[in-house]
């Protein structure tokens, strides 16, 4: 079922220079988004808030791919789920094609959901184990009111060919546990694509996969994005995969986007000390690594219930400016036109 040529570029484009997005319209806009979760005291009352997303803003253009990079617990999942309409923002909003997502309901909400595809991290968990591939792919269509099974089958066939799950007939009756990790992830991608969405949100789509299939899935996502001119939000902790994928990259730390840049700018010239630490911690396979220590800050990300005053990175930052960083939260500085950061070093 696989292409017999094991290592060719095939029809999947490899790393293309970042394209799209430059002049096109904004499709998704996140404005001053706050997502706080209440911590309930036993009984009644609120003991505090988990500030999972704290004042995040960005625009996503049609056909543009962005990456949000951060460690676990930095709030990137909450940001993503708010964009997907699964969480309600505490403050600020998410607008899609000019409409505020949290104010959508009924038909409009269904329409929005059909416009956004969601690719999850763990492909096995993302697929109901008791449904066949055909059924899994039919579900979103049924929910969208396509009751003609012939029509559904046609669409399922089309999307399966697009994610290269062929021969289609062989895969339709299979259950998730009968598929390999890579194939499962293709089903997840097919499900995200089946209603021809304009935006795909991918949460660590390859982190659970083996190294040898990761690239295959990344290329598939990239080719789908380019072929359909999709807007794409790629959420990951792994910097090394980002550049094969997106034009812009946002680094998230403790609920805030601490740096926004084009990917090459960020890799060549990271501004925020946290970004610098991330880059320094990411290793490429190299035997010299064994004899070097990595320069990474000690300590761990702060609690989102009581984040440190001022800059949230300052307790771990070796370049913190006394009497400033621990007092006042840095605003966004823009040392280069397409490169901004929340750091007092660039005031």
């Amino acid at each position: 079922m696989d292409n017999p040529i094991p290592n060719s570029v095939m029809d999947i484009p490899s790393v293309n220079p970042p394209t799209g997005g430059e002049d096109s319209e904004v499709i998704l806009s996140v404005n001053g988004l706050h997502v706080w979760f209440e911590l309930r005291r036993f009984g009644f009352g609120v003991a505090g808030y988990v500030r999972a997303v704290d004042d995040v803003s960005f625009d996503l253009k049609k056909g543009e791919a962005i990456a949000i990079v951060g460690e676990s617990g930095c709030g990137k999942s909450s940001l993503m789920k708010t964009i997907l309409g699964l969480y309600k923002p505490t403050k600020g909003d998410v607008t899609f094609e000019g409409k505020s997502v949290q104010q959508l309901s009924g038909r409009d909400l269904q329409w929005y959901r059909s416009q956004v595809g969601y690719v999850q991290q763990d492909p096995y968990g993302a697929l109901p184990p008791f449904m066949s591939v055909e059924r899994i792919l039919a579900e979103p269509l049924i929910i969208s009111g396509i009751h003609n099974s012939e029509k559904r089958r046609e669409q399922i066939r089309k999307v399966m060919e697009e994610v290269k799950l062929y021969p289609v007939e062989d895969f339709l009756p299979k259950f998730p546990h009968m598929l390999s990790g890579g194939q499962q992830q293709r089903v997840v991608i097919a499900r995200a694509m089946i209603r021809n969405p304009k935006l795909i949100v991918a949460d660590e789509p390859v982190s659970m996969l083996d190294a040898s299939v990761r690239v295959e899935i990344l290329r598939l996502l990239r080719s789908l994005q380019q072929r359909h001119n999709l807007s794409f939000i790629y959420i990951t902790h792994d910097l090394s995969t980002v550049k094969y994928f997106s034009e812009r990259i946002f680094v998230m730390y403790a609920g805030k986007l601490v740096e926004k840049a084009k990917i090459n700018e960020l890799i060549q010239n990271p501004l925020h000390p946290y970004t610098q630490a991330l880059l320094s911690a990411s290793s490429d396979p190299d035997y010299h690594n064994a004899t070097k220590f990595r320069e990474v800050p000690a300590g761990e990300p702060p609690s989102l219930v009581k984040p440190p005053a001022g800059c949230r990175f300052h307790p771990r930052c070796n370049r913190a400016i006394a009497d400033l960083c621990e007092v006042e939260a840095p605003p966004e500085f823009t040392p280069q036109p397409t490169h901004s950061t929340l750091c007092w070093l660039y005031r």
């Binding site: 699964l86 999850q120 697929l127 579900e139």
Partner: peptide, 16 residues
């Protein structure tokens, strides 16, 4: 589990 989250994201109703 992930598939419930996915179902919510593609708009499955509570009863469904």
């Amino acid at each position: 589990s992930g598939y419930i989250e996915a179902a919510r994201a593609y708009g499955a109703s509570n009863a469904r």
